[in-house]
Amino acid sequence: MTFDWLVVWNNIGALLDGVKVTIFLAVATMAIAVPGGILLAVMRMSGIRVVSAIATAFTELFRNVPLILVIYMAYYVLPVMSGLSASPLVTGLIALSLNVSAYNGETFRAGIASIRKGQSEAAYALGMSPWQAFRIVVLPQAIKRVLPVLASTWISLFKDTSLVSVISVGELSYAATRVRAQTFRVLEVLTAMAAIYWVLGYPQAKLVDWINHRWGRAE
């Protein structure tokens, strides 16, 4: 059994290009899914039954369907629905955003609900409107409180970006697949891919642990 690890070194550029796409997907998804999650949480707290029902249905749907299926669905449904054909990258981004928004929606809903009622009352007593009380008093506290959970969600998201490789988005997993196909060095390339994910993910996991340690339940 001979292993040719030089193959990995020779193709490192392609793999690193994949890493760039992975990072882009994760960052872009979170950038959409954090406001998305807050929006969903606010919708679920709404007094208008239709609004909260839609938000609940959305959240439950995307939390109870495998992400890989959502990705395939997005791939086939989006061109039909919108008439345009979005690139695989955008399609993957949309699927990831829908999925993570649903999780963040639940996270924010729980976080907002955990802020003592007295805080809102103190805000109302000063004459603030419900929106002002939410924006100035409740939401800032809720965000701080859910930061550890958001960090965990980020870690999961980073791994889940690998799934969009099934619709040929050029992130790390897909890049590794192509290098594998070209070089036939299956073990070396796959191990390298796993190692790269490890190098990226392990420090992030440790950082999340530190965040949890520092900011787990301040009040």
């Binding site: 791994k159 970006t161 490789s165 994910y197």
Partner: peptide
Amino acid sequence: MRAIPVLVVLVWTYFA
């Protein structure tokens, strides 16, 4: 395992 996606573990186990 927190760092490595399940897809990667699956593919490695099957192919590598």
